Every structure is written in structure tokens, then in C-alpha cells.
Computed example of a mutant assay.
Amino acid sequence: MSNDKSAGDSQPAANIQNEDKEIPTWHSAWARSVETPEELWAEIGFLSFSLGIETKFVWRGLPSAQYEVKSALARKLAASGVVPTEENLRFNEVRAIQAAREWGLGHSQYGYASDLHMLALMQHHGIPTRLIDVTYNPLTALWFACSDESLIDEPAVLIGMAVSDVPVIETVPFLPKQTWGGMEDPLGFDYSYALEKSAANQMPFLVQPVVRDARMTAQEGLFITASVPEQSAATPMWGFPYKGNWLLLSLVREMKEMDVDIQGSRWPSFGMLGLIIPPEVKKVILPILENSFNRSHRTMYPDLSGFAGQNFNYERAAN
């Protein structure tokens, strides 16, 4: 994941009034609250085991339930007065990649990095991109949801996404593409083609880093992204194609509660379910994650910049 310690390309979401409380509008449709650590654990187990042993999941933790999932590049453009359309996102990420290459980044004795690998590196070092950090490990995402001390008194959200049929694009192609597009643009073809397919199919795609440093390995991290549709809709993830059934996992959860048999060993459709974690549960879960499951700032950021971010205290030597 990136240098953002809340693991969040996130920002406050639109709110509605509900029982004298303000909650984000998208919660009522696709998220459910948990009241105890045991209930949270049971919900993670439901998503992990009830949809078939071949169903693939990725996870993301938001330290505040007031956040929505929105890429850093979209936020950056909006803050600059630029509407974050697909055209504007693509124009600015191409400019950023070109500027990074002119800076001298993205090449070594082994050759030149692909555009997608450049974007993964930029995201990893806190440069705004459209990539959104996710992880294969729910415990890692849960730690990111609970570990921000500045937001410890706010509800968090653990998001599980079923991605069995979501395409996976590697940041370093295994073999060069023997196509006209691949020959004309060998460094950028894989990414531009994935965006075209995303626009046509109205589905996101996963970006799998091939060259992984210590932090990426520890976090079991990868990215999810999509081509921004021309018309936005009220989805849990801003800028994602809205053809996907965002309510799918919520409906499946209701079927499970009614003892409806869920057949099959693999859930094919893209869908997601958010688990809203109250502050009192966050405070109980965090030490368990750190002591029983070895999730901490040291293990999630096992590099020099991670150590530097802990603000090491310097003291006077004892006389």
C-alpha cells in the first residue's frame, strides 16, 4: 500500500440524516454494522467461506465511516478545480508518467519500466494516481481501519470485495505483446488496453505488482482501479463503473440469514460489502491484531521510511 498510513485514498462522503445521526448515503445500501469483535469476526468468516472456496476477495480498511473510496488523483484534480473525468484523469497521469521518466525514474540496467509499473511506484510513494490500495489479507485491511489514533473515536469500515472475475493486469508483462498496439507503445499498451476494456465492460481491474519491496510484501498489497464512466452513480467506490451489482453481497447476506442455500464453489460477479466498526470495537480489536496477528506499524511498514515516520524520540544521556 502507499505511504498513507490510513491506507486510504479516501475523503468525506455525502451524508444523510438517520435517527438524528449523519451517516454517508452509501452505507444504507451496501454496508452493515457490527456490535462486537465476535460479530465482526463472524462477518469476515461469512465473506471468506460462504461464497465458495474458489471465490477470490480483496479487502480495504477505511479509518473513518465518513470516508468514501476515491483515488488520490481524482481528489487532487477536484481540489484544483478540474472535473475528474476519464479524459482529465488520463491526460494528467500520462503527463505524470512522462515527467517521472524525464526525471530519470523508471529505467535501470534491466530496461524501462512499463507505464503501469510507474504508476504503481508513484502510488507507493504518495504521488496521486487513480490506483486504489487493497490487500489479499483481511487482517491487514482491518489493522488499517483501526490503527489511526487520530480517528480512534470514529467508526471505521472494513470493505470486502469479491473479485473472482475481475481481470488482473501485472505491472511487468510476462511476455511482450505481439500486437500492433504492443509494438507501437510497448510500455503503455497493457494499461491503455485495460482501461479500454474497463470502459467497454463497465468492470474494474486489479493491478498486481510483480516487483515487490518489503512493504508491499508485508501488506500483501495490490491495487484496484477502473475507467471512469461518463455518468457517475451512487456507488461505494467513486468513479467505478456502475454496471456491477453493488448490492450483491448484501443480498447474499440476507439470503444466508434466511437459511437459503447458496450453491456453487465460486461466486463470479463483482460485489462488495462494508462492515461498519464502532469505536469501542476498534479499541478492542487493535491490540488483538498487534499481539495475536503481528499487525503493527513495524510489521506493516518494515522499511527505513516506515521507521522514520514513527518520530523517534531523542533524549539526553543519563549522567
Rank of each mutant, 00 (worst) to 15 (best):
Y301G: 05
G274N: 06
L289V: 03
M258G: 00
V168P: 00
L151Y: 01
E19S: 13
F57S: 01
D4G: 01
R95P: 01
D165I: 00
E184T: 03
T135L: 00
I169N: 05
Q208S: 09
F270N: 03
K282S: 08
V69A: 10
I16F: 10
G182D: 02
T217E: 08
S2E: 04
A226N: 14
D185A: 05
S108K: 02
A100L: 11
K256Q: 10
K197S: 09
A74T: 09
S80L: 12
S10I: 07
W26D: 09
L119G: 11
H297K: 10
L158G: 07
M118R: 03
W41E: 02
A14E: 15
G239E: 15
D9A: 13
V210A: 10
A14C: 02
I97G: 06
P236C: 12
G104L: 04
A214T: 10
L248A: 11
L187G: 06
D185Y: 02
E35Y: 03
F223S: 14
Q231P: 01
M118N: 04
K256G: 12
W143V: 04
F240M: 14
G111R: 15
T299A: 12
E196S: 14
S108Y: 07
A96F: 04
W30V: 12
D4A: 06
W26G: 07
V168I: 12
D261N: 01
N294E: 09
R212P: 00
A318G: 02
E86K: 13
P37E: 08
S71M: 05
K5L: 00
L121G: 07
K70F: 14
L206K: 12
G61F: 09
F307H: 07
L40R: 08
T55A: 04
S305P: 01
